[in-house]
Structures are given as C-alpha cells and as structure tokens.
Amino acid sequence: ESFERTINIAKGNSSLGMTVSANKDGLGMIVRSIIHGGAISRDGRIAIGDCILSINEESTISVTNAQARAMLRRHSLIGPDIKITYVP
C-alpha cells in the first residue's frame, strides 16, 4: 500500500542531488538517481523509484521530462529548504 508523504529537506547551500524523469502515466515524476553527498542522499528518506507528486506545493502531475528537470532546478535555487510530497 502506497501513500503520500510530505517532507521538508534542509539543503542549505548544497544541491538536492537527484535526477528525475516524467512518469509515463502522468502521475508526477520518478526519482532516477540520487547523488551521494547531496541533500536527498543525506536526508535518506527519498529513494530511487519513488514518485514525486509536488515540490514546494507545485504539482508535478502531467509534466514532461524537460519540465520535470526545469522544475527541480528552479526549486533547488529557492531558499535553504525544500518541501517534497512523494509516494515511496
């Protein structure tokens, strides 16, 4: 059984350190890789294959690959914290 989780990740000045791609069925974006030493890796809660539904409350539903990457990059630049809703 999968259910949504919303977490805050304190990334400070470091990068999030993950790559994503659009989910084929349009439901959010899938975590493709996690870079060791990045904020996601240090936090430890998000794993490869998890589905991200929103970043800082901006929905990732029906985004393209390019939009998913641009959204991740944009939110990575805002502030020291990032809020991610995902399904493990």
Results as ranks from 00 to 15, higher is better:
V87N: 05
L72M: 12
S14Y: 13
G26I: 03
I84H: 00
V63R: 08
T85S: 11
S21V: 12
Q67L: 05
M29T: 06
L53N: 07
P88W: 02
D43M: 00
G26Q: 07
M29G: 02
I40W: 02
E4P: 10
I82H: 04
E1I: 14
I40C: 06
I46F: 03
G38M: 05
R74D: 08
E58G: 02
R42I: 09
A70W: 07
Y86G: 01
G26T: 06
T6K: 05
M71P: 00
I61R: 15
V31W: 01
G26L: 02
N13Q: 12
N23E: 10
D25W: 07
I9W: 02
T60I: 15
K11D: 04
I48L: 10
A39W: 04
R5M: 10
D43C: 00
N8Y: 13
Q67R: 08
I52F: 01
L27P: 15
T85N: 05
A39Q: 05
G26V: 04
T60M: 14
G44E: 03
L72F: 06
L27N: 15
L16W: 05
G28Q: 01
Y86A: 02
H36P: 15
S76Y: 07
E57N: 15
I82P: 03
T6A: 06
D43E: 02
G17C: 00
S14L: 14
C51K: 13
L53Q: 07
L77H: 15
I30E: 11
I55A: 00
I82V: 14
G37P: 07
I40F: 00
R69E: 14
R74N: 08
H36Y: 10
N56P: 02
M18R: 02
L27K: 15
A70Q: 15
V20F: 07
L72N: 03
G79T: 11
I7T: 02
S76C: 09
G12N: 10
R73H: 12
K83A: 08
R73N: 15
T60H: 01
A70S: 14
S21P: 00
D43G: 02
F3L: 12
N8T: 15
V63S: 07
K11M: 14
S54A: 15
L27H: 15
A66M: 08
E4G: 10
R42D: 09
T6P: 03
I84E: 02
M18D: 04
I34D: 02
D81G: 08
L27E: 14
M71D: 03
L16G: 00
N65C: 09
G44V: 03
R69L: 09
I46Q: 02
L77W: 08
I34N: 03
R5D: 03
L27V: 15
A70D: 14
G17A: 01
T64V: 03
M71N: 04
I52V: 06
R73C: 10
R42M: 11
I55F: 06
M18I: 12
S2F: 14
R69C: 11
K11E: 05
S33W: 04
Q67C: 07
Y86F: 11
L53K: 13
L53E: 03
S15L: 11
N56L: 01
A70N: 11
I35E: 14
T6D: 04
S2N: 15
T19R: 11
Y86H: 04
G26D: 05
G38W: 03
A68D: 01
S2Y: 15
Q67P: 03
I78Y: 13
T19C: 09
T60S: 08
K24I: 08
K83T: 11
I30W: 04
E57K: 10
T85I: 05
A10Y: 14
V63F: 07
G38I: 04
P80R: 13
G12F: 07
A39N: 04
H36T: 15
L53G: 00
L72Q: 04
T6I: 07
I7M: 02
T60V: 15
E4V: 09
I48H: 06
E57T: 08
K24Y: 08
V87R: 14
T85Q: 07
D81H: 11
N13V: 09
N13I: 07
A47D: 11
F3H: 12
I78M: 14
N8F: 12
E4K: 15
S15G: 13
G79K: 09
M29H: 04
T64G: 08
A47I: 05
T6R: 06
V31L: 02
G38H: 07
A22Q: 13
K11A: 10
E4R: 11
A22E: 09
P88M: 04
L16H: 02
V31Y: 02
R69V: 12
G44A: 06
L72V: 13
S62P: 11
S41V: 03
I34Q: 03
E4D: 07
K24R: 12
A66V: 09
I82W: 07
A47G: 14
N8Q: 13
S59R: 08
L16A: 01
A66W: 08
V63W: 10
E1D: 11
Q67E: 14
I35K: 15
S15E: 15
S33T: 13
K24L: 09
M29V: 15
G79C: 08
G28L: 01
S54Y: 09
V20L: 15
M71G: 02
V31R: 01
S2R: 10
I40K: 03
D25L: 08
I40A: 06
I35A: 15
R42Y: 05
M29R: 02
L27R: 15
C51N: 10
K83H: 07
I84L: 09
R74Q: 07
R45Y: 02
T60Y: 13
G12R: 09
S14M: 15
R73E: 15
R69A: 14
D81S: 12
S62Q: 14
S54Q: 11
I55N: 04
D25M: 08
I46G: 01
L16R: 01
I52W: 00
L27I: 14
G38E: 12
I78A: 15
S41Y: 14
M18H: 01
I61E: 12
R74E: 10
R5S: 06
I40V: 13
R42E: 10
S59N: 06
G38K: 09
G49N: 05
A70K: 12
I84A: 01
V87E: 06
L72S: 03
N65A: 11
S15W: 09
A66P: 08
T85Y: 02
H75I: 14
S76G: 10
A22Y: 05
G28Y: 04
G12A: 08
G28P: 04
G26C: 06
S14C: 13
D81K: 11
R5G: 03
L72H: 04
I52Y: 04
R5F: 05
D25S: 13
I35Y: 10
S76I: 06
S15R: 11
D50P: 00
D25P: 08
G38C: 07
P80H: 12
S54M: 13
G49C: 00
L16E: 01
H36A: 15
D43Y: 04
T60L: 15
A22L: 07
I52Q: 01
G44Y: 00
I9E: 02
N65W: 04
T19L: 09
V20W: 08
A10R: 14
A70H: 12
I7F: 04
S76V: 06
D25H: 13
I35C: 11
G12H: 09
T85M: 06
P88F: 04
R69W: 09
T19M: 09
I35R: 14
S14I: 14
M71R: 03
N65V: 09
I7Q: 00
G38N: 04
I46A: 01
V63N: 05
N13M: 09
S59F: 01
G17Q: 00
R42C: 09
I55T: 03
I35N: 11
N65T: 14
S21F: 07
